[in-house]
Structures are given as structure tokens and as C-alpha cells.
Amino acid sequence: MLHYARPLARLVAEFEKLPGVGPKSAQRLAFYIMRLSDEEARAFADAILEVKAKIGYCKVCFNFTDQEICDLCRDSRRTDDLICVVAEPRDLIAMDKTGEFKGKYHVLGGVLAPMEGIGPDQLKIRELLARLHAHEVKEVILATNPTVEGDATALYLARLLKDLTPRVTRIAHGVPVGGDLDYADQATLIQAFEGRREL
């Protein structure tokens, strides 16, 4: 069996650790890196190191930021009255792309999952309660994923927040807007059907 030269094997092994990257993709990526110029390769390596050195968590919402408090939390055009709770920073990005939501966010850093050793103490829940105590918040929107764990987390928060804020809401899920019912998968349709509302 043919082996890679050691430095190449090391790079392939590093790529294989990335989520969604298997042996074949790792090999393709490593070969691509080898064809880069020295400057391009250095820029790539620097970008990785810079992220590690400069990015941390926002002290308020726990989104990724290179500052003490992130841009979103400091944005004065956003109201402090509304807080949208998400599991991960990538969910925040997805929600905010809509441009519809003008409040602030709170990133939990995961969802309840006893099997992964994640209970309420492992999530940024105490920090969320502190925010509600510090400022009056009119509504908390729970935007965790519609999975068993996401639902359990939303339910846990809803019970906890009930007396701290006038309104706790959960985002709706169902049929994609503008799509044909024909193209939606059965699971989505069933959920949309169960969550139907009166007109």
C-alpha cells in the first residue's frame, strides 16, 4: 500500500477531522493546498490562527465576536425589548439574514441533551435570566430547532421565563413559503398539518 510523505499525511489527517470531510475529500483539499503559492498558503494558515487568537464570545449575547461586546448588541437601532434565543451562532446568522427581526439575540451554546452531558448548567441560561433581570424585556422568542432536543430546550426556557417576561413565543414550523406542497417532504407536511391554525 502506498503512503503519503509524512507532511502530506499530516495535512490530510487534519482535514479529515473537519465536519463532513471524509478521506477522499481530505485528500482533494490537501492536494489543492499543495498547489497554492507560498503567499496564498500563508494567508490561509494566518486566517486560521487569527480566528483562534481574536474571536471570543460576546459578554452579553454569547455570539462570536472580536470585541468585548458584539456589533449586534451595541447597535442602538435594535430594541432591547425583544430577545430571540437561538442554540448556535450559525442559527443567529440565519435568523438575522431575514432583516425582519429588530431586537437582540441570545446564543445558548447548544441544546439540552443528557446523552451529550448537556444540562441547563452547560447552556447560557443563567446569563439569559440575568439579562431579563437587568432590563425589562417585552417578549422572548424561542428559536431553537424543531428537534426533540430543541423542543425540550424551548419548553424548559418557556417554563423558566414565564414569570420574568410578559410574552414567551416559539417560532412556527411547517411548509416552506413559496414552495409547492408537492415538493415538501412528508415530515414537514405532517408537522404543518398538526400546527394548522384557524383563518
Binding site: 439540552l112 443528557p114 446523552m115 441547563p120 425540550a152
Partner: peptide, 28 residues
Amino acid sequence: ALEQRNRLLKDVKYGATGIESLDVWTTQ
């Protein structure tokens, strides 16, 4: 949901974690 709840019950039994999230797994 059952796997998560069983794990939580086991952790609570051995004192590894608190009971406060049991209700939401029961609801699930």
C-alpha cells in the same frame, strides 16, 4: 426523547446532575 430521559434519570440517580430538566423530557 426516551434515550435522553433515561440518561438523565441515570445521571440523577448517581448524583451527576440535577433534576430540574426532567419535566421537559417527561413532556417530550
